[in-house]
Amino acid sequence: MREIDPSANSSDTSPEPLSEQIFGRMLDAIYQGRLSPGSVINEVALAQEFGVSRGPVREAVRRLQGIQLVTREPYVKARVISLSAKSALELFQMRMALEGVACNLATRRMSDEEIGMLSAELEQDRQNYLSAAGGKAALGRVFDFHERIVRASGNQRIVNALCGDLYHLLRIYRRHSGTVLERKHDAYAEHWQILRAIKARDAELAESLMRSHIERAAQHLSDHLIEPRVAVNRSA
């Protein structure tokens, strides 16, 4: 994590407040595992690393607590959430239902141009990943296939449920479900299958493929968490 200039919260140099910068850096650290699940949040050390006072770090920790990425009990230091099989199962079951419907709606509502753009971005994301894995280039901006589908559904309640504060928690579990290389490759193939169904305007097939894709990710994640395996409800 690079040091942040405390003067960056000035409206003359950056529209983003310092506290927002710290929050973003800590989110990034949690996403990438530099602040690993269950690890203690050392506010003093983080303040020194960022080159700021402890106040913005403390505010960022409070915000992370509010979106369930950090836990804090009375008289106990704050910690990054520990991933649990039970929590993963509940979240992924919710995703199966909501993202399945979102995929159905997106298939009916997206224009041919929007589908073409999604296809191009998915291919670019694959190329970025292959280049980064081969040490040829750094990954570009984050592309989230699932977020794009949810937003394309046009259903604001589904968007709010999956792309609001809960999105950060979902993203951490999704990241861990794709850490094994074989699952990463499988996920890309499954994304393309979903996209082909969308291109064919087969809303029911697209929904079924999305649900199956999330179900496999949930099973994979529960198999790799420390807790005893929790079986995925196949009828969900």
Rank of each mutant, 00 (worst) to 15 (best):
I194R: 04
R2W: 05
T179N: 10
I149Y: 04
R54Q: 12
P17A: 02
A217G: 12
N42H: 14
S131G: 11
M210A: 12
D144N: 14
V150Y: 09
E121S: 11
A197N: 01
A85E: 06
I30R: 10
L139C: 02
H220V: 02
L181F: 13
S153V: 09
K199G: 02
A206W: 05
D12H: 00
D202P: 03
G134A: 08
P17F: 00
V180E: 14
A45S: 15
L27T: 04
A217M: 10
L169Y: 07
I149L: 13
E207F: 05
N233S: 06
M110W: 05
R126K: 14
N155L: 01
E99A: 07
Y75W: 08
L35D: 08
H176Q: 10
R63K: 12
S82W: 06
N128K: 03
I81G: 00
M94K: 13
V101A: 06
F145W: 03
A203E: 09
I115H: 00
R174P: 15
V159I: 12
R211A: 15
M117G: 01
I194L: 06
L18P: 04
L118W: 06
S208D: 07
R175D: 02
D112V: 09
L89W: 02
S19I: 01
G154K: 07
R54T: 14
K136S: 04
A236G: 01
G24Y: 00
V230Y: 07
T179Q: 15
A133H: 04
R229Y: 15
Q127K: 07
R175W: 05
A138M: 11
L105D: 03
L64Q: 06
E43Y: 01
I149K: 00
I214Q: 03
R58E: 12
C163N: 05
R141Q: 12
A231C: 04
S208V: 08
E114N: 05
L122F: 05
Q93G: 12
K199R: 14
Y173R: 01
N155Q: 08
A138Y: 04
S222A: 14
D112Y: 05
A236I: 10
A88L: 11
M110D: 01
I149T: 06
V52N: 07
K86Y: 11
L89A: 11
I41H: 09
A218E: 07
D165S: 14
H220S: 14
P37H: 01
F145P: 02
A200T: 06
T71H: 11
V232T: 10
